[in-house]
Design a protein around this nucleic acid. Structure first.
Lengths: 125, 125
DNA sequence: TATCTGTACTAATTGTGTTAGTACAGATAA
DNA sequence: TTATCTGTACTAACACAATTAGTACAGATA
């Protein structure tokens, strides 16, 4: 079974699920930097999905800077993820602010919000 | 111009936008409790949308407990929103936990998370 | 040379949201 | 009663986007 996964029941398009999936794997270090990605056709055969759908995901992954594709050679995980890491951190910060505003709008007390933060950052060794 | 709104460019289906929109208006007190909602046909004419789409939204709104529909009489905003309010608070709490975990995963420091919370709860008079 | 690679393109298919149209029963006011 | 409103139910058609299917081309590699 592959580390790549798609869910047909998900509302999100398959190519978008795949780009998010690969981006996540790279950022979590589960795909070694510089490593060769499966070819478009191989990934398609592996997941039982049409090669065109995979290619659409690869194009988006290259646009994001997650992979680099070289015609005739293959696609490779980028060797520099620093920009990706800061991007992810900043978008996570924005998302946190969004959900915090929504929670306040829903009537949540500041104390409870702090408690949620403490629970997340607290219990890890 | 109506207080109800839909956005064709949005990826979310119109009937779903409408249910969220109405739910939000009710919870924010912009639609008086017990008030008569526009009829399915009136809302459809108002927004320039097919009545079937509106009805789909109304069915969902009744399932959520936001409105009550009575054949031959009309649809009315519920008179008791206490359950809706607690539901919204709890789902906001869950969402806040989710984005907090994602932020921590992205490498955010606890101090920055607290700062974001403080900014949201801080500046309001 | 043979076979891999990414890339590009058109056409067909599929699924879902939306529209179109009709119909029925209950409620209300003339 | 009659006329007209209401919600509800249903089938058929339409529109759009995602996906699939198929083919083709050029560069890289052994």
């Amino acid at each position: 079974m592959s580390i790549f996964s798609v869910d047909y029941k998900n509302r999100k398009p398959i190519w978008e699920q795949l780009t998010d999936n690969v981006t996540d794997l790279v950022l979590r270090g589960l795909l070694p930097l510089g490593e060769a990605m499966p070819s478009v056709r191989a990934m398609a055969a592996d997941l039982g999905i049409n090669p065109n759908t995979i290619q659409k995901a690869y194009v988006e992954l290259e646009r994001r800077g997650v992979i680099v594709s070289i015609p005739g050679r293959g696609s490779f995980v980028t060797t520099d993820i620093s920009a990706l890491l800061t991007e992810r951190l900043e978008s996570a910060a924005a998302a946190l602010g969004e959900s915090a505003r929504a929670a306040k709008e829903a009537g949540m007390e500041r104390e409870r919000a702090i408690k949620i933060i403490d629970e997340v950052w607290g219990n890890d060794k």
